[in-house]
Design a protein around this nucleic acid. Structure first.
Lengths: 166, 166
DNA sequence: GATTCAGTTCAAAATGAATTGAAACGAGAG
DNA sequence: CTCTCGTTTCAATTCATTTTGAACTGAATC
């Protein structure tokens, strides 16, 4: 797609794929630059060097370095044995199931655990504070807490399922 | 749960539920204060007045006003006919299916549409730029684009489904 | 019709996250 | 051993978002 001397400019195709991932990543609450970097690598048939990414996306060295690191940690990209020079080249992990799985695991699982703790604690606290409210109100509160627990357990069952389907 | 003169302090139970929603809302990329407000209302057997929310959560009038407005727009809370004084009282919409449905609709649907456009455009652009890459590379790119389109269509089918299950 | 009160608005401040860029690093070449 | 080149690190900056608070609105009360 890109010719040798054409390092500094995104092709329209690349730009579109970059936008796709920038948007996805923003939705997930990750830095946009990370999505852009991944998108560019994903849109490239051959592995890309650091400087190419820096120039095409017009990002600072720092951002590129950080972004590559995070993507590596997520398992979204891999280093490919450099050919001629000493520069590293980066290729996309195309199995996105793994990628999405990792993101879910890193964000959603800790989230669900925090919520589990809180709901368990809320159960205890409600029992302790029960005396302070009327029986009717207590019943209403218990019902609400029950609803929260129901959602929580649904989320727990649905989310791994979704992970598998995608 | 709260007695008449006890307006300014969260009970431990309330605090826990507030934290549950603050965290949920943060995960969804909405302002934390919105989650706190909803959580407090959700944790209350009777409708709450503006000033109670302001004091218990220690938020500014501005935040409370904004938060209540957003929650109203989302259908997460409703005004309840004021009894004695002229203050409004707010009650939680406990059907969370609707709430979650609304959030999904407002965030995910527009997102999916943007992505649809981009992928369609990318298809065209790839055809236009086909000449610039080797046949092998072109094949690889087409395959990647195809993968994106597959995920996209899976997301389109899975997400409404999840909305119904939760 | 003036006053009080509940709530809203919006410009400015605060916060927090992402990005930058300069310095440091370290591997390899000479 | 020193120099160069590619990359990383991290403190400072920039940018976006949320929060604040003072001024304002409008409705009910006197």
């Amino acid at each position: 797609m890109a010719e040798a001397g054409d390092l500094a400019v995104l092709t329209p195709f690349e730009a579109e794929i970059v936008a796709v991932f920038a948007d996805l990543v923003t939705l997930l609450g990750l830095p946009k630059s990370m999505g852009e970097i991944y998108g560019l690598i994903f849109a490239s048939p051959e592995p890309l060097a650091f400087i190419v990414i820096e120039q095409k996306l017009n990002l600072s060295k720092g951002s590129v370095s950080q972004g590559l690191r995070s993507l590596r940690e997520l398992g979204a990209i891999q280093a490919v044995a450099g050919e001629s020079d000493r520069r590293e080249r980066w290729a996309a992990t195309v199995e996105l199931r793994k990628l999405i799985g990792t993101i879910l695991r890193e964000r959603l699982v800790p989230y669900l655990e925090r919520q589990d703790h809180r709901l368990a604690k809320a159960d205890i606290l409600l029992a302790q504070e029960a005396a302070a409210v009327s029986p009717d109100q207590l019943k209403a509160l218990r019902s609400r807490l029950g609803k929260l627990e129901t959602w929580q357990s649904r989320a727990r069952t649905v989310l791994p399922l979704v992970g598998k389907m995608l």
